[in-house]
Design a protein around this nucleic acid. Sequence first.
DNA 1: CAAAATAATGAGTGATCGCTCATTACATGA
DNA 2: TCATGTAATGAGCGATCACTCATTATTTTG
Lengths: 204, 204
Amino acid sequence: MPDRIQQQLIEARKNQILDAAAVVFAAKGFHPTTTKDIARQAEIAEGTIYNYFDNKTAILLGIFERMKASVVAQAAPPAADVHDVREFLHTFLYHPLMALKADNFALFRIVVSEMMVNEELRRRYYEQILAPTLALAEASIQEQAASQGRSPANLKLTIRVISGMIWGLMLEHIMGDSVVAERWDELPDFLADLLLNGLTDDKI
Amino acid sequence: MPDRIQQQLIEARKNQILDAAAVVFAAKGFHPTTTKDIARQAEIAEGTIYNYFDNKTAILLGIFERMKASVVAQAAPPAADVHDVREFLHTFLYHPLMALKADNFALFRIVVSEMMVNEELRRRYYEQILAPTLALAEASIQEQAASQGRSPANLKLTIRVISGMIWGLMLEHIMGDSVVAERWDELPDFLADLLLNGLTDDKI
DNA sequence: CAAAATAATGAGTGATCGCTCATTACATGA
DNA sequence: TCATGTAATGAGCGATCACTCATTATTTTG
């Protein structure tokens, strides 16, 4: 059998296990889920899992790796596409907020929970997702400001504040706040307006 | 023995156990910590724990209850003290941000981690901490706006965005972002300026 | 001081669960 | 068709750990 097809079969099995794990993790959480649960959901034997993953934590890391591609692709618009601040805010705010609405939050909760407690997961998230996204956003604005002969001193921190807003609103959503939940779709515009114009009379 | 003194002794023992649990939870995380670990740290026998707490989760809830008082007290300024928006922003931003700097983040990480996964903890946090704090902030601004004959339509959402910023920045700090860490002390002023004036030239 | 009530103890229990590995089933190729 | 290599299987192992409870220690009371 050619190596390429062989490789594809292995990938398919891995994905089958990751799909199953995502379902049961989302439903029960990471720790309460047993490897037997995963196997049952994937309709394979428990032992088979260990032909493809070293241990239970490796499965969570596998799920994380798969989330990476989609999150980074959605959250980070190509720098070239951004021509002014309003456009930047729209892409930078709209995509992550809407992506998270589409998913159910359950799996996200599990990953955040483990991340708070697992050094490696935290490091991977920062190095592979958060830092690159922040850097891309920064470069995008940097370039635009430079074309106007400017170099905003607090850009790095500003990017982090904006990114943090999204994180915070997600958490408030997860906590069950109904105001945030009900007005989720308006958030990109609302935040862009707040950022551009500050606390206007309708807000405070 | 009078009931009052009896009650104080029970409280003292509980606090002794909670102190010990906070130390070992912060060091090892909730799940990896055994009841034996807690007992050893508290210098009592394992069984004694169960004279004061129903189970391991009850200990975490106990820690949470103790955090409540201090967090709410620090984060929520009395409404009467606020006379204008700038003053409001200072109290509302300064206290929570500085309180979290003073603590080490370890125990906070553990609580957030369990909260993501534990429905009851999440509900308690929302009902007993987040919602009251938001309501207090809202009332404080509401009152001030009313005195000017105004009634800001988006106040509730605005309060949530500001609160979310703090959450998000905390998470970025926990994730290991050095920009946020290094400029933590400036954040209250930086955020107040951003909120009042929007994205000025130094920022974007 | 003795009896009774209360609190502390820690070895033991029962159940759980991640992971292994000897065995079985299947696929490949001569 | 048979020999050989590869993948799947699931019973069982070893270890862990939250929690119990019979016993011991301490305090209270008459």
